[in-house]
Design a protein around this nucleic acid. Structure first.
Lengths: 269, 269
DNA sequence: GCAAATTTGTTCGTATGTATT
DNA sequence: CAATACATACGAACAAATTTG
């Protein structure tokens, strides 16, 4: 047996999908029909379909059938922005601007504020001792009604105690927190680092983004540490994006606005 | 049935793994033992293990058993670099510098050169007509003997015709192609855009990186388009990194060198 | 080096549950 | 409510990879 039968069936179906014989959205034959067609057992056919499912080529719907996956329209977030005066890409108002420029509809949940003790990870990135009090500002973002990202910013509680009271109010800070902190405390953001990882979604994320709970769809996790003039972290912003509907851009030096790649939807900040 | 039995078994094992009762690298009970323990069939136990496998919590080795996944030491590539005089991060000699600074051993395959007609994707990003001749320069990269990334750069054939003959020689261009193109043709790179996507590995990549062929491990794909003074693309560099062993950093503005996050291995360019 | 034992991988058949039309 | 289609679960047999004696 060179290749197991379920792989051969999967390859055959895959070719039909990639050749266009089975276009996106179309329905595959039922398991029983495929069982006849390939002279295999139903379990073997299901193994083949599971293989294709893991490759994200098809999706099964109980009671309905198996369908060729329809590619999602990716949204492209430009992470590079003005490090000094404003926010980097993907944050606050720049998110809405970027989405509207792509002729799509942006929405976000009300800001949700919490006070917590820093986890080891947050403490390390903010360079404060573990369990230091931090203010969390959490937001959920949607494009055309579909959830696209989750963002949580962490600020040392110290900033609030020194006068930045609005940080712990559950209100949108219109001018942006960067401008707010400069105006109130004279703290200037001089730069930021974006640290990108990819991992499986946790249960909360799978639920919110309506992802299959088996971790098939990966998440980008972007840790943005922003620094003030003393090269001290002034905040940490963690954003998670499902990789099946998001792409990221970072510009360096002088670059023209991008052409849209085929089938992609994008605009610059 | 609130939750299927295989999920309950999976959750039970998952807790043991996450609590540390089953540490990384340790071996799970065999399928037959688990079948006894949970009073289920072997197939149901296998469904549970498959679930954990998809979450990348365990891996199975035929003839040996099932083992708790050992986390890989991620390598962190800093993609932001000097957009003007040198290369961006992750390219050419900066790759070696970055790896050595992390006290690890870098290696790369000899450069492999080809001439092809641009695919639709390459043509769009280089802003040339489809099927325009382009020179490919391809390299494989290793850290401590493990494959970490694959990089292919595309240059319009026009550059070679205008005198940049070394581009189509299968030799390492010591000073870097950016410096070479400036010296020979006076073409200056003034910036670049990095466009990041995440996707399943193709067959070649799965083979090279020794990834499971079911697309469980995602790949970063970074499209770097570099621009000259006329804001015209002068090259396209496509790099793919397996997401299980790579992380990416972009700096914006003035930022200090990073502290190492827990369990991570990193140094700045 | 080889044979046996162990462990996971593949394939089949069957029955029943759950979601959707 | 019935029909259809995928999901879960059991049992069994043999194949392939690896380790052990």
């Amino acid at each position: 047996m060179a290749n197991p039968m379920y792989r051969q069936i999967a390859e055959d179906l895959r070719e039909q999908i990639e050749s266009g014989a089975l276009p996106p959205g179309s329905q595959l034959k039922t398991e029983l029909e495929l069982r006849e067609q390939y002279d295999a057992s139903r379990n073997t056919v299901r193994d083949a379909i599971r293989w294709l499912t893991n490759l994200d080529l098809v999706e099964t719907r109980p009671g309905q059938g198996t369908f060729v996956t329809e590619p999602k329209t990716p949204f492209v977030t430009t992470l590079s922005g003005d490090p000094l005066t404003g926010l980097g890409g993907g944050e606050g108002e720049t998110f809405k601007a970027e989405v509207h420029a792509a002729h799509r509809k942006a929405a976000n949940s009300p800001v949700q504020v919490e006070i917590q003790n820093a986890t080891e990870e947050v403490a390390a990135r903010l360079r404060v001792p573990k369990d230091t009090e931090v203010v969390l500002r959490h937001e959920r973002r949607f494009i055309d009604g579909t959830p696209y990202s989750l963002q949580t910013s962490y600020y040392p509680m110290d900033l609030v105690n020194r006068g930045a009271k609005d940080l712990q109010k559950a209100i949108n800070i219109k001018q942006g927190t960067v401008t707010y902190l400069r105006d109130v405390l004279g703290i200037k953001q001089v730069g930021y680092r974006d640290w990108i990882t990819v991992r499986a979604p946790n249960a909360v994320e799978a639920e919110f983004f309506k992802l299959p709970s088996d971790g098939r769809v990966a998440m980008y996790e972007v840790f943005r540490t922003a620094f003030d003039g003393n090269q001290t972290p002034m905040r940490l912003t963690v954003t998670v994006y499902p990789a099946d509907r998001n792409q990221l851009i970072f510009n360096s030096g002088t670059v023209p606005p991008p052409h849209n790649a085929p089938g992609q939807d994008h605009t610059e900040v």
